[in-house]
C-alpha cells in the first residue's frame, strides 16, 4: 500500500469513495527482533505454569491442614485456602497460555475469504426438485385422506401423556381451598412459632404479635402445615382505642383495641412483617406496600390494591383471644375468580 498521504492518491478509481488502505503493516514485537526478549517471554510462560503447579499443591496442603470443624469460621478458612489454591492453579495455566499466544506465537494477521452463504441457483433448483420428487413418491398431495389421517394421529397421540399428567400435576385441583384458612370459630390465637395461646391481657398498647392458629404440635410438624400457615398467619396489634377507626360493619371484630389482620400481602403474598408504631403503618418488605392498621388496614402506598383481610376476634371464658370465624374473604394475592 502507498504510504503517500497526499489527498489525490487515496481515492479509488470512481473518485467517489476512498480506497481501502489494506491491512496495516505488521508491527514487530520486541521478541520478534530481540532473541533475549523472546527467551525472557518463554521463561515467563514457564514460571506461570509453575505457579499453577504450586497452586494445586497448595490446595492439597490446605485440604489436609484446614479441616472444617463445623463452625462458620472453620468452614470459611477451609473454603478460602482450598479456593485460593484452585484459583492459582487455574490462573497459572490461563495466563501462561495467553502469554504464550501473545508473546511467542506468530502474530501476523492473515486474511481469509468468506464464501457465499446461500446455495447457487442450480443447487437450489436441484433441492426443490428432490423435495418435489419425494412428495410425488409419497403421494401425499393427491391423497387428502391420508394426509388428514396422518396429521390427526400425530396431533392426538400427545394426549396419552398429557391427560394423566395434567390430572395429577395440580394435586387435587381444588382451587376453592384458596378461600379458606385454618381459622374457625373459637380457635385460639397462638404465638408464632412457639404456639403459645395469647391472653388479651398480655397484649399491651402498641405491641405486635405474630400469630398462628392454636393447632397441635403434631399438626405443626406435618408436611401440610406450611401450606396452611402460608394462609393463616396473622398480625395482632393493640391500638389506643382513640386511634382506631372501624367501619360500622366491623365494629364487633376487634377486642378492646386489639385488631387482627392477615399477614399475607394482598399484592403478591409476602409476609407484611414491618410495623411502625408511631404511624400505625404496616409495611411489606418485599414491595413496600403500606397499610394503615388504624384505618381498616387500607393501602396508603405501594403496589397493593386491597386492604389486608381482617380476622374477627374476641376472647373466650379463660381470657384467651379466639377467632370469631374464618376470614370473610380469601387472603393473599388477588386471582381471577376471587370474588365469585
Amino acid at each position: 500500500m502507498s504510504e503517500n498521504q497526499h489527498s489525490t492518491d487515496v481515492t479509488s478509481a470512481d473518485q467517489n469513495t476512498f480506497a481501502d488502505p489494506g491491512i496495516p503493516e505488521h508491527q514487530h514485537r520486541r521478541g520478534d527482533v530481540d532473541a533475549a526478549a523472546s527467551k525472557r517471554a518463554e521463561r515467563q510462560v514457564v514460571v506461570l505454569f509453575a505457579i499453577s503447579v504450586i497452586g494445586t499443591i497448595a490446595s492439597l496442603v490446605a485440604y489436609f491442614a484446614f479441616r472444617p470443624d463445623g463452625t462458620t469460621s472453620g468452614t470459611r478458612l477451609s473454603t478460602l485456602t482450598l479456593g485460593l489454591g484452585m484459583a492459582f492453579a487455574l490462573l497459572g495455566i490461563g495466563l501462561a497460555a495467553v502469554h504464550w499466544a501473545k508473546a511467542i506465537m506468530n502474530d501476523t494477521e492473515v486474511s481469509e475469504e468468506r464464501h457465499q452463504l446461500s446455495s447457487p441457483d442450480d443447487v437450489r433448483e436441484a433441492a426443490v426438485a428432490s423435495l418435489k420428487a419425494g412428495v410425488d413418491d409419497s403421494g401425499i398431495a393427491r391423497r387428502g385422506m391420508l394426509k388428514g389421517a396422518a396429521l390427526s394421529a400425530l396431533a392426538l397421540f400427545p394426549l396419552t401423556i398429557a391427560v394423566p399428567l395434567v390430572s395429577s400435576v395440580g394435586g387435587d385441583w381444588n382451587v376453592s381451598k384458596l378461600r379458606h384458612t385454618r381459622w374457625e370459630k373459637g380457635m385460639r390465637l397462638a404465638t408464632d412459632p412457639t404456639g403459645r395461646p395469647i391472653k388479651a391481657s398480655d397484649v399491651t398498647i402498641g405491641s405486635v404479635f405474630h400469630v398462628i392458629p392454636d393447632v397441635s404440635e403434631k399438626e405443626r410438624s406435618s408436611g401440610e402445615w406450611l401450606s396452611e400457615k402460608a394462609k393463616a398467619v396473622v398480625l395482632l396489634i393493640r391500638l389506643d382505642p382513640r386511634d382506631l377507626h372501624e367501619a360500622d360493619d366491623r365494629k364487633g371484630w376487634s377486642y378492646d383495641g386489639i385488631v387482627a389482620y392477615s399477614k399475607i400481602c394482598t399484592h403478591v403474598g409476602c409476609p407484611v412483617a414491618l410495623y411502625e408504631q408511631q404511624t400505625h403503618h404496616l409495611l411489606c418488605p418485599c414491595h413496600q406496600s403500606t397499610f394503615d392498621v388504624a384505618d381498616g388496614a387500607k393501602v396508603v402506598f405501594g403496589p397493593a390494591h386491597r386492604p389486608l383481610p381482617q380476622l374477627p376476634i374476641t376472647v373466650d371464658d379463660d381470657g384467651y383471644l379466639v377467632a370469631q370465624s374464618d376470614f370473610h374473604e380469601p387472603v393473599g394475592p388477588s386471582y381471577w375468580e376471587r370474588l365469585k
Binding site: 484459583a87 492459582f88 487455574l90 495455566i93 490461563g94 501462561a96 497460555a97 499466544a101
Partner: peptide
C-alpha cells in the same frame, strides 16, 4: 487459556 482465566477468577 482464557477459559482457565475465567475459571480462575
Amino acid at each position: 487459556g482464557f477459559f482457565f482465566i475465567v475459571f480462575g477468577v
